[in-house]
Design a protein around this nucleic acid. Structure first.
Length: 616
DNA sequence: AAAAAAT
């Protein structure tokens, strides 16, 4: 009954933007309207009219590598980009509030004016934003109806239904309109009031559901309205008020781009710092003043050790992809930043942890209740577009040696169906950096325009590859897990797990690169004997998302001898508050959380032993 | 075991 590869791709690719699978949908934009959609983060770019004509040099002509004859975008620091570091605009400039900190030195005034991150369609801050586009927000809100929401902790502020209900301030409200956000997504509805109330937060919301805005809005609003002590001047150290950490450089860049839009003409300045790029330009940006610093951990530690940045004025700390930030590889760095530098302790700062997944092990191991958070609220918003029916998930048994030929079938089917191109991007995940290079080379040799992103490439190559993919010039991107989390790439129609990850959470994040903003997508996985440890959790995840689970996978999942772990308390939500798990409210663990960090509010008693665990 | 993240 299951159809062939080619059928699978044809069927899903043709409808991948239409078969959202939810009821209603009568207001879904037409195909024509959709193709006119320009995602927020691309609206300030020069229009990509036509891809450069492929040079006659063969398959490599689409490659973005140096000397390959592909499109040559300017490098971030090579002067090719126009949206950064423009000088000589004359004086004036925005600055919603004229007090305090670096603004005393001139703020946006002086030589440079704040560059409009919304591009040319927004000529004047006072003018009515252009609302003549077909789409309103790019978000399919039909997909967000009846999302299960779980909150726990004491005195949880009630959710809001509109942005108007929240007093975020005029300047920020204007930017929300410029972003064409008409109403908050579920995670925003719940998280923003919690955050505005000053509460710490651990938030689980599925991929593509608007987490960035959920933590940016309260931070920007708080900085605009807050009265902060004058920050030291005349020293070469800068004192940001907010810190946003993320696990990859590209994600930090993306968060920075979003945050710049949200903070446009609010007087709040956002700066990004990450490795692999020359530090001097980042230092110059910092010295011009910084309220919100977006950074990757390594570069931030470097800046702290050089005393270029001090965290002693931090009032807001946000960890995006927080479970990744606190896993084995990152935890020491994060602890150093959060606990061993000059950052104020929990309670004196507001801490927000966001992720689409929150394995219980992370919550427990790091003991975030007492280490990172103070009297926090746990929020879980059911997955939309990630492991729901918004993403059609397929898994096929493919031996290692057959993978390339299967991949070729998939891509051929897409091309034959005429859906390859700018609006049907294919993201292929592999396990290793070498594997990524090798597969990219093979695809190019076979006439398929592919590029690759992984940690062995230079930062310039990585960013060029991502741009080339996003623009559709190179509609196939081969990636390692560096691209698994957080990246918002519109028009990814198909995620292929050429090599499956070992961890089901990584799978969730990977397939979440499609089905963004309530749109649907397709995810295909190649499964073989090397992936047995994933069988049980994968089968459970797919079943939970109403996906068709092949019989052979169900059989593998049932064999305990494979050391299957199952889904670690994932359940209907992206995660759950470990405080609700009875096993952590008994025995020697309980003291860590009830006695340690000041508890978690008045309703704590209801989480005593014996709480029925519907998810374990 | 691999990937990511400072130089």
């Amino acid at each position: 009954m299951r159809s062939s590869w080619a059928d699978a791709v044809e069927n899903s690719a043709g409808e991948s933007l239409d078969n959202a699978g939810t009821s209603g949908g009568n207001e879904r934009p037409s195909a024509a309207a959709r193709s006119a959609y320009v995602p927020p983060h691309l609206r300030n770019r020069p229009p990509v009219s036509e891809p450069p004509a492929p040079s006659v040099g063969g398959p490599h002509s689409f490659n973005d590598r140096p000397g390959s004859g592909g499109p040559t975008s300017g490098s971030r620091w090579g002067g090719g980009r126009t949206e950064y570091g423009r000088q000589g605009y004359g004086g004036g400039g925005g600055g919603g509030r004229g007090s305090g900190g670096w603004r005393g030195r001139g703020g946006w005034g002086g030589k440079d004016r704040e560059v409009n991150p919304f591009g040319n369609d927004d000529v004047d801050a006072d003018a009515e934003p252009a609302f003549n586009e077909q789409e309103n927000s790019g978000i399919n809100f039909d997909a967000y109806e009846d999302i299960p929401v779980e909150t726990s902790g004491g005195n949880v502020p009630p959710p809001v239904n509109t942005f108007a209900e929240i007093d975020l301030g005029d300047a920020l409200n204007l930017n929300i309109r410029r972003c064409k956000y008409v109403k908050p997504t579920p995670v925003q509805r719940h998280a923003i009031p919690i955050s505005l109330a000053g509460r710490d937060l651990m938030a689980c919301a599925q991929t593509g559901s608007g987490k960035t805005a959920a933590f940016c809005f309260p931070i920007i609003s708080g900085i605009m309205k807050g009265n902060f002590p004058q920050r030291p001047r005349g020293v070469r150290t800068v004192f940001p008020l907010a810190l946003i950490l993320s696990p990859t450089r590209e994600l930090s860049v993306q968060i920075h781009e979003e945050a710049r839009k949200f903070s446009y003409q609010t007087g709040v300045r956002v700066v990004v710092a990450y490795g692999g790029a020359p530090i001097n330009q980042q230092l110059r940006e910092l010295e011009r003043g910084v309220d919100i610093l977006v950074a990757t951990p390594g570069r931030l530690v470097d800046l702290l050790e050089r005393a270029k940045v001090s965290l002693q004025m931090i009032r807001y700390l946000a960890l995006d992809e927080a479970d990744r930030m606190l896993d084995m590889g990152f935890e020491p760095q994060i602890r150093k930043i959060v606990e061993q530098m000059d950052m104020p302790p929990p309670g004196e700062r507001q801490t927000m942890l966001f992720s689409a997944t929150f394995p219980k092990e992370i919550q427990v191991k790091v003991r975030m209740a007492s280490d990172f958070l103070s009297n926090y609220i746990f929020l879980a918003v059911g997955r939309v577009g990630s492991s729901t029916d918004l993403i059609v998930q397929r898994v096929e048994y493919v031996h290692e040696n057959d993978k390339r030929s299967y991949l070729m079938d998939l891509i051929h089917a897409q091309r034959a169906n005429g859906v390859q191109g700018k609006h049907a991007l294919t993201l292929v995940f592999v396990e290793t950096k070498k594997g990524a290079d090798s597969l990219e080379h093979w695809l190019c040799m076979n006439g398929f325009p592919a590029t690759t992103i992984h940690g062995d490439r230079t930062q310039q190559e990585r960013e060029t590859a991502l741009r080339s993919f996003k623009s559709g010039n190179t509609p196939i991107l081969v990636a390692t897990d560096v691209a698994a989390r957080g990246l918002d790439i519109p028009h990814v129609a198909h995620v292929i797990n050429f090599d499956l990850p070992n961890d089901i959470d990584d799978y969730v994040h990977r397939i979440g690169r499609t089905g963004r903003a309530g749109k649907s997508g397709l995810a295909t996985a190649f499964f073989n004997e090397n992936n047995m440890s994933l069988a049980k959790s994968l089968a459970e995840l797919m079943k939970e998302a109403n996906q068709e689970v092949p019989d052979w996978l169900t059989r593998f999942a049932g064999r305990a001898s494979f050391g299957n772990k199952g889904r670690r308390g994932g359940g209907r939500f992206g995660g759950r508050d470990f405080r609700r798990d009875s096993s952590y409210n008994r025995g020697n663990n309980s003291g860590d959380y009830h006695g340690g960090g000041g508890g978690y509010g008045g309703s704590g008693g209801s989480y005593g032993g014996g709480y029925p665990s519907a998810w374990d």
